[in-house]
Design a protein around this nucleic acid. Structure first.
Length: 742
DNA sequence: TTAAGTTAAGTTTTT
DNA sequence: CTTAACTTAA
């Protein structure tokens, strides 16, 4: 009896076929993570491979973290020397050691999409590019897809020869790379591209890593792009023990450069490859699986695969069409409440999935009024928020002022009376003397054109220098606190006294706790290390299991996750599939990608699935009238139940709101939850007490101001009764009500 | 020259 | 409905 006996035959094959290239086609819910972890254990325990020689690559930090955890639990000693990380962090790790061999400094900074856009704006201005015709966004997109395909600026120019527009793009591409190089910065795509460049150009480095990574596993292989493929090919070039796991039916990142032929042609790239299919689904009910199969069957050009399950038929799929998107959100909220009430599910069993981030708002609003704890994944990444980016820019500047972008970002935040004109003069000076922007600031007094503006710059430079000298004594989180204190950043927000400012302050608090926990978890914390860790996190990474809240996210974010009950919202032609894909030049192809997305969505559900849509919906202030999504029609009709709701004008919306849920769950506060959720669901219970009492005036994000008339302690939380001035009397749980004393 | 106030334009999906 | 670019007042 061994741990491998619990696997089915195909899974076992995936575990024990360790030598040579292996393609595992893993249908949704077929237990591929189990195969990967068991395979790793097998390599170490049965084959006696040193963990040092094993590498696993995933797309998200969350996936990497999960795999790491499960491998650790299974392998025990030595598992920490396995590289388990994302493509991007793997590359950063390699580049930090060796990028000097291709002419960069090893303390390079990483630019996010925002930073890239700022660079692009400047370039367009400098090259006199009419951004009405060539939009920054599309220029960046062109550059990004070139990088995905490993096309360097020179190659791009070569290929562009005949086409004026393309030649212009080539020019911009070249300039963009120059600016990044000058700033010692890499963008996301560069992380991969430069690693490939390094491995291609430096035989010594390549040999080192080839020798090290004798066994390589790649998860979500269907989403790799050409550059990532080349990276893997190079690394696995010597031993060729490459195991890739993926599902062509779940390829949903074409827009990000994913090359579906990486998986479809794997056997061509590696002629002696073994292909293993995992076709038994352990996740979903028969009905859910049938629905998914019914939809995906409409795609041509996929690897033949027939997913089956030994699970029960389960409930029918609940399909509901509503009059408006409000009614849709209302239904989902009520349905969740009723599931909770009769003990069928907990909040953490639910997920609401949608095509676009904008759809989250209606659900969010509705969940607040219903006291449903929730968490939104995605939207604006935590580290991409203004306030967080501002503080990060301070930290970057203190750490290493070579990043002009960061310096420029904060030089006038808070307002120091330094405007665009002054900045331009400084950067002209920097340009003339070939020094960095920050160095030019240091010499502000010597820049004649500045005049009295130089006096405004001096305190800023002094501040940065002072902080820099304090860094060794303070550590990251204390430094951050000091920056906030000295700049008055939070004070300024407090003075604003708006809901928005409040959210920002909470984000800043959260940012501080991230810094604290970084210092606690890291053996040798450093400012540079912190900045690096923060540069590569995605929003999905913060999602924790076992927490009691409903999760809201896009279908893209949902890949790789599963939930007992899933709502697929906004299933309307024009929304999903998106209008863009329907009218596209290659609509067939794009619709297939959308269909795969639908397939991903449906297969997230374990027990129950509800599909909802609305007849009319406000999109960017305009009302749209949409038909039921074509994907719904591809689901065999006998699998569907539910009804199509007729407009109900007689019923007032007020009546529909269940103001007092009968048995609201006592909530545990998840740590590290996303900021949207935190903003609305944050526990005001500090150390088991509230900062308001009976008789106090409080404000609520939705109901406005009111007076507290009662507080009842129950379990871990407080049930607070508030008489609102305009919204009547409500009972709510303190941790979700976000009541603010006024 | 800066900063506040006003008007115009734009939205898929993201490491 | 929200964010970015433009205009005007200080």
């Amino acid at each position: 009896m061994s741990i491998y006996d619990t696997l089915n035959e195909q899974q076992k094959l995936g575990v024990t076929t360790t030598e040579g290239p292996v393609l595992i086609l893993a249908g949704a819910g077929s237990g591929k993570t189990r195969v990967l972890t068991h395979r790793t254990a097998y390599l170490i325990e049965e084959k006696g491979i040193n963990p040092y020689h094993i590498m696993a690559i995933t797309f998200t930090n969350k996936a990497a973290g999960e795999m790491r955890e499960r491998i650790d639990a299974m392998v025990g000693y030595g598992s920490e020397s396995i590289w388990v990380s994302t493509f991007h962090s793997t590359c950063v790790r390699i580049l930090r050691r060796h990028i000097d061999r291709i002419g960069y400094d090893t303390n390079f900074t990483i630019y996010d999409a925002d930073d890239s856009k700022s660079v692009m704006k400047e370039i367009c201005k400098r090259l006199n590019i009419d951004t009405k015709i060539y939009k920054e966004r599309s220029l960046l997109a062109a550059i990004s897809s070139a990088k995905d395909e490993l096309i360097a600026p020179d190659d791009f120019a070569l290929k562009a020869a005949g086409d004026f527009g393309k030649r212009r793009q080539a020019e911009v591409y070249r300039e963009y790379q120059n600016v990044l190089k000058k700033n010692n910065a890499l963008d996301f795509d560069d992380l991969i591209v430069k690693t490939v460049e390094l491995l291609r150009n430096d035989a010594e480095v390549l040999a080192y890593y080839q020798e090290r990574f004798r066994y390589i596993v790649v998860d979500e292989y269907q989403d790799t792009n050409t550059a990532q493929f080349e990276l893997i090919r190079l690394l696995a070039g010597k031993y060729k023990n490459l195991c890739v796991v993926g599902d062509d039916d779940q390829s949903i990142y074409k827009f990000r450069g994913a090359n579906i032929y990486n998986i479809l042609n794997f056997e061509k790239h590696f002629p002696d490859a073994v292909t293993i299919k995992l076709e038994q689904n352990y996740r979903s009910t028969q009905n859910i699986l049938d629905a998914a199969n019914g939809v995906i069957a409409n795609n041509v050009g996929r690897k033949r695969k027939s997913l089956w399950t030994a699970n029960d038929r389960g409930e029918q799929i609940d399909f509901e069409q509503f009059d408006t998107a409000y009614d849709e959100a209302d239904f989902v909220a009520r349905d969740i409440q009723s599931g909770i009430r009769n003990g069928k599910f907990g909040y953490g069993d639910y997920a609401v999935l949608y095509r676009t981030n904008a759809q989250s708002r209606l659900f969010e609003e509705r969940f607040i009024t219903s006291n449903i704890p929730y968490k939104i994944v995605g939207g604006v990444n935590f580290y991409a928020r203004k306030e967080v980016k501002d503080l990060l820019a301070y930290l970057k500047t203190i750490d290493n002022a070579r990043d002009d972008l960061a310096v420029r970002r904060i030089i006038n935040v808070p307002k120091r009376g330094i405007g665009a004109t002054t900045l331009n003069r400084v950067s002209d000076y920097a340009e003339d003397y070939g020094i960095s922007f920050y160095d030019a600031l240091k010499q502000a007094d010597e820049i004649p054109s500045l005049g009295k503006a130089a006096a405004k710059i001096r305190p800023f430079v002094t501040f940065i220098q002072t902080m820099r000298s304090k860094l060794p004594y303070l550590g990251v989180s204390e430094l951050l606190r000091e920056v906030i204190e000295e700049t008055g950043y939070v004070k300024e927000l407090e003075a604003e006294d708006t809901e928005e400012a409040q959210v920002r302050i909470e984000n800043i608090d959260e940012f501080i706790s991230k810094a604290v926990s970084y210092e606690e978890n890291e053996e040798q914390p450093s400012l540079g290390g912190f900045l690096e860790e923060v540069a590569l996190v995605a929003d999905i990474d913060g999602l924790e299991e076992g927490n009691e809240y409903v999760v809201l996210m896009t279908l893209h974010s949902a890949k790789g996750l599963e939930f007992p009950k899933v709502y697929l919202a906004g299933m309307e032609d024009g929304l999903f599939p998106s209008y863009m894909s329907i009218v596209s030049d290659n609509a067939t192809e794009e619709l297939e990608e959308e269909r795969r997305l639908a397939y991903v969505g449906i297969t997230r559900a374990k027990k129950e699935l509800a599909i909802t849509c609305a007849r009319q919906r406000m999109i960017r202030g305009e009302t749209q009238y949409n038909k039921v999504s074509r994907f719904v029609k591809e689901i065999p009709a006998e699998l569907l139940s539910g009804e199509i709701r007729k407009p109900s004008y007689g019923e007032s919306r007020e009546q529909k709101l269940p103001v007092r849920p009968k048995r609201p769950a006592v909530s545990r506060q998840p740590s590290g939850q996303s900021m949207q959720a935190k903003a609305f669901a944050s526990a005001r219970t500090v150390g088991g007490s509230l900062d308001y009492g009976v008789g106090d005036r409080v404000s609520h994000v939705k109901f406005g101001n009111g007076t507290v008339t009662g507080i009842v302690e129950g379990g871990r939380d407080f049930e607070v009764t508030v008489a609102f001035d305009t919204a009547g009397t409500k009972k709510m749980f303190a941790s979700f009500a976000k009541l603010k004393k006024i």
